[in-house]
Design a protein around this nucleic acid. Sequence first.
DNA 1: TAGATTGTTAATCGATTAACAATC
DNA 2: TAGATTGTTAATCGATTAACAATC
Lengths: 216, 216
Amino acid sequence: MEYGREFARDISQAVVGRLPRYFRYLGELKDEGVTRISSRELSNLMHVTASQIRQDLNQFGGFGQQGYGYNVEYLYSEIGKILGIDETHQLILVGAGNLGQALVNYMNFQRRGFLFRGIFDKNPALYGKKIRDMEVQPMENLEQFVRENNIDIAVLTIPKASAESVADILSGCGIRGIWNFAHCDLNVPPHIQVENVHLSESLMKLSFRLKNDGSV
Amino acid sequence: MEYGREFARDISQAVVGRLPRYFRYLGELKDEGVTRISSRELSNLMHVTASQIRQDLNQFGGFGQQGYGYNVEYLYSEIGKILGIDETHQLILVGAGNLGQALVNYMNFQRRGFLFRGIFDKNPALYGKKIRDMEVQPMENLEQFVRENNIDIAVLTIPKASAESVADILSGCGIRGIWNFAHCDLNVPPHIQVENVHLSESLMKLSFRLKNDGSV
DNA sequence: TAGATTGTTAATCGATTAACAATC
DNA sequence: TAGATTGTTAATCGATTAACAATC
C-alpha cells in the first residue's frame, strides 16, 4: 500500500508521536524472529492499551486479520512506509559544534536512510575540517548547496541568536524540514515542517518530576 | 512560595510539558527588560490561547493580578521554583561517546544548575581521558561514586544493549532520575523518574510530516 | 471610579478506553 | 466449525477553550 497526503491531514499529533515507538518494538520483534503478534500481546509489551494500538493502526488501514493478529514483518514495513523511512532523505548540518558533530557521527540515522550530505558553520577556523568524509563549508555556500543537492532536511545546531535568520535562508531555498536543536521556536512558512529537540526543556521536565513525583 | 510533593501529583503531563516553554519566554522577556505581561500578550507571543496560560499557571497558584497581568520577573522565578531549577542537580554521564561528550561540553545545562560530576564508560581505552576537567572512569566505580557524591541524575548515552543493566545498577544506588538517550524504554522502580530523548523517533516524526503535511 | 485582566467555572472538543459485531 | 482477534462504534474520560464574576 502507498501512503501520502490525501488522508493524513487529520492524523492527530498524539498518534504520530506513537508511530515511531510501534516501529521500534516491531523491529525488535522481527529481529527476534517473532512472526505474528496480537494487539493484546503488543499492549503487554509496550504498556499501552490494546484498544489504542488497534485504533492507532486503523487510522492508516486494516493491517491485521481477525483471529490471527498482525504479521510482524508486514506491519513493520507498512509503518516504515507511513513514516516515510522507506525513502532516503538528504540532510545537511548547520552548526558544527559539539552536538552537531556528534549527530553527524551517529551512524543510526544513516541506517534509516537519513544521509548527511554537507556541513556548514560560520566559524572560518572550521572551514575545511573533515567530519565523516565531509568538509565544513562556509555559510555562504549554503543556499546553492541545498538547491543543487536536493536537500530535504536541515539539522540546526546553532545558537538561538542566529537560528531565526538561518531558518529564513533555508526556507527560501527549497528545504522541506528543519530539525531544530536551537533553544527557540522558529517562524517559517507553513509548508516547512519544524521538529524541535529542546534538550534543556527535556531536562527541566525531569527536574520537575524529581521534585514532585519523586520518592512517594 | 514553596512547591513540592503535596499538590503536584495530579498535574497532567500536558501541563508539565508546557512549563519549560513558559519559562523560556519569560526569561527572554525579562532579559529584554519587560516588567509586566498579560496572558493575552503572552498568548500572542507563544501562539497558545490566553485561557490555557491562565489555566496552566493556576494549577500552581495565582501569580497574577486582576487588571494588571503578571509580573515577569516574579512569574519567571516562581516557574523556576516549580521546575526545581532553583536548586542545583548533581549529574553523571554514563557513556562517553560522541553524544555524551557533546552533552558534557554543553555549557547551558551548567548555567541552569545541572552540574556534571563524573563520567563513566566501559571502554578501557577511554579511562583517564579528560573531558571538561573530569577523567573518564570505569563502570566499576559507578555505584560508589553515585553514593558518595549524592548524584541525582544519570545521563545515559550508551547503546541499548547495555542500557537496561546499567539502569538496574543506577536504580540500586540512590539515583533519582535518568535522562535516557538509549534507544529503548527502561524498566525501573516507580520512584525513579525516566525522561527519554529518542532522537531517531524525533527524526521519524519529522519524516512523517514531510511526507504527509508537506507542500499543501 | 472605570477599565483591564485575572482566577475559575462551565461548555466544548478531542483522545482514550470499552464493547462487540464482523470475520478469519 | 469454534475460538480468537480484529475493525469499528459507542461510552468515558481528560484537556482545551469560552465565558464571566471577582477584583485589582
